[in-house]
Design a protein around this nucleic acid. Structure first.
Lengths: 142, 142
DNA sequence: TCTTGACTTAGAGTGCGCTCGAACTCGTAA
DNA sequence: TTACGAGTTCGAGCGCACTCTAAGTCAAGA
């Protein structure tokens, strides 16, 4: 598989693939006789996993640590496990944080909704007045 | 309240507070007669809310939109509500994404745990051998 | 009066993660 | 044979969100 196809299949750009190779996130790819990168399909699994780490906010420098442990063989599995466990803990914390913020957001949005509701009630309670055009408001001091 | 105290109480640095004012995220602060910023405690609530937006990954340019709507008065409340609702949706999506990644992470970690368990079982099944020091492994082809 | 330290401004610098450009090389199809 | 498109390397540039520096001002305490 050439870099273009890998790009299509992985969702990365060719620029990013070369960049990842340069910094060591992707292993140095074999080249064909005209020195073009030629990939094995298995690289897709690795890229996909990197994508998950990225999605969960792992900085590249840490993905790099993981990649290096991987390159060093199965002796490093406990270290890799530890790294992923630390990361998982951070992600869990992050999820909790986001959920807490969602509650605040709900409250805030609820507040705006109430105001809008009171305005609608007010308009409805004055059926003899001409209904205001949507969006129009009385002038109001700042 | 001077900028130093606000920094202490808000968790931002004075640098960041000035930066936020410069870009319009914080309102232009009143200055005392020697042109030092003098804050009202109410600014803390705003900073706290900005913090939530930031925590949930809202880019500054969007916080800026919200801040500008706010400055323009209560006519903009429906727009602010809409902005927050869009954001809430994105945050929910993000939480789902993170939870999905957590599952994958669990699987991966589970895989490493299994390998470690098999190694422990292997050691335990050979009671006549001297127990290996923790961390030691047989040499293994790469 | 002198010193200290918290403040002021404008603007430069930083770290991250890409993203792009320039100049070049190949292999293939018209 | 020539033109095209996909690839190559190296290095510069970018957007974001700060973060820091330099040079100066000012008020209060020793």
């Amino acid at each position: 598989m050439k870099i273009g196809e890998l790009a299509r299949r992985s969702g990365l750009t060719t620029h990013t693939i070369r960049y990842y190779e340069r910094i060591g996130l992707l292993p140095y790819a074999d080249r064909d006789r005209s020195s073009r990168r030629d990939y094995d399909a298995s690289i897709l699994l690795w890229i996909e996993f990197l994508g998950r780490l990225k999605t969960t906010g792992m900085p590249i420098r840490e993905m790099l640590q993981y990649a290096e442990l991987r390159e060093r063989g199965s002796d490093t599995e406990p270290a890799r496990r530890a790294l992923l466990e630390r990361h998982r803990e951070r992600v869990r914390t992050r999820v909790d944080e986001l959920n807490a913020c969602l509650l605040v957001l709900d409250t805030k949005i609820g507040g705006y909704a109430e105001v809008e509701q009171r305005m609608k009630d007010y308009d409805a309670a004055l059926p003899q007045r001409r209904r205001k055009p949507v969006g129009a408001r009385s002038p109001r001091a700042r």
